[in-house]
Nucleic acid binder design. Structure first.
Ligand SMILES: [Mn+2]
Ligand SMILES: [Mn+2]
Ligand SMILES: [Mn+2]
Ligand SMILES: [Mn+2]
Lengths: 219, 219
DNA sequence: ATTGATTTTTAGGCTAATCTAAAAATTGTT
DNA sequence: AACAATTTTTAGATTAGCCTAAAAATCAAT
């Protein structure tokens, strides 16, 4: 089907297209893929020949329906494997990404579907990201960044934007896990930090924390 | 660490060295790898530079200790994943090989060891092949080919030599599974076929069956 | 030991995916 | 609108892994 590298490009374009809507620029893709712009141009041409992306020189790139479907399939596998590692093999949520990066390229539709069944058709991965079903449909949800909550507003932790080991370990250390209720006690506008109540304790978090934690507000 | 291709070569050399003791010839390796002799020579040189094999031009190749260890690690992963697919994901024993060929290259020592633990430290894969422990030690067993049993001798099915879909389906169709008792009722020397008793039924099997089924004789 | 067949290696090329350096196109600022 | 800065593409190399065809070494049989 598609090469490992092609799959990684498709996934990266998918994420970038979601993040900033509009065509994905060569440089943005190069940064995401940790490669050089010239390499991106080469690959984008190849993907374009295979009709996985729409590409006009100097105008950035968009996924075609076919490319989007392929990207979602890879994302589905990535997230299912992350659930497997955490739920079945005792990995913690900060250890699974690199292994899932490898496992997401295993080619077997039956494997993916049986894994999904074995895991009980999970809706979200260990970082709160939605897992598309076998038809490629995501369950969308009304989540906000912690940073966007008003003073006094409460919600439930439902996901992380940054999945780095460092951030996830910070959350673990401070008792912040998915599903936990959280309340914004006070907003300090000067440094954009927040005082939040979690586990009945008050904790001050800086902007780099609050812009990386997703909250589903309780109405 | 090692590339996918390098790992596959090491595994192939390991199997061939076991099968016929002595140096592994370029042609034998080319056939096993389904590639050309010239490609084998290239790769063998590379493995030799990395000290994974001992190689003298025209004299065939041997695994070094380092190469053997790497090969066993790949085999361990292959067989553990096969157990996972059959035991946890409802695959049948004739469907798992190609997927395990992909999964065996996933790099994470912790993943392998946790998988092993999750599966309850299985001793054999679905085809009866022994699974090395994390130190690379195989449990050896006194198994014979069905073809080597004498008339009247009994034993237990413990493994297959040929793991092809066709052979495994033949066994399924005739109720032959690992762990089943089996008895050689009569040997027909003319065509080297055997009459065997299995599940209280008599079944005639030709030489191509009896030379691909391993039996542990009951004394 | 010589010859002939077989096996193995070498020589030279190809493709996918990457890189550096240079050229071309686009964008932003006066 | 012109020019400088930035972005993107092109040109030309490199590496891993494979190929075909030719040369060299080994093996087998007289
Ligand atoms: Mn991940
Ligand atoms: Mn994730
Ligand atoms: Mn197998
Ligand atoms: Mn097996």
């Amino acid at each position: 089907m598609f090469s490992l590298s092609e799959e990684n490009y498709l996934k990266a374009i998918f994420h970038l297209e979601k993040r900033y809507s509009g065509g994905v620029s060569t440089n943005a893709l190069a940064e995401e893929m940790e490669t050089k712009a010239s390499s991106v141009t080469d690959m984008v041409k190849k993907l374009s020949d295979k009709e996985l992306v729409k590409y006009r020189k100097y105008q950035g790139v968009h996924l075609s329906d076919k490319g989007k479907q392929a990207a979602i399939e890879v994302i589905r596998k990535h997230r299912l494997w992350e659930v497997f590692l955490v739920e079945k093999l005792n990995f913690s949520w900060d250890e699974v990404h690199d292994i899932a990066e490898q496992l997401e390229h295993i080619k077997s539709e039956k494997l993916t579907d049986e894994l999904d069944k074995f895991l009980g058709h999970p809706k979200r991965d260990p970082h709160g990201d939605p897992i598309p079903d076998s038809d490629g449909n995501f369950r969308i949800s009304n989540k906000l960044l912690l940073a966007d909550l008003n003073e006094g507003q409460s919600g439930i932790c439902v996901g992380v934007k940054d999945s780095s080991t460092e951030f996830l370990r910070y959350l673990d250390k401070n008792g912040i896990t998915l599903g936990k209720p959280i309340k914004v006690v006070q907003r300090e506008e000067y440094d954009e930090s927040l005082l939040i109540r979690i586990n009945a304790d008050d904790l001050r978090v800086s902007k780099s924390i609050s812009t990386n934690l997703f909250i589903k507000p309780t109405e």
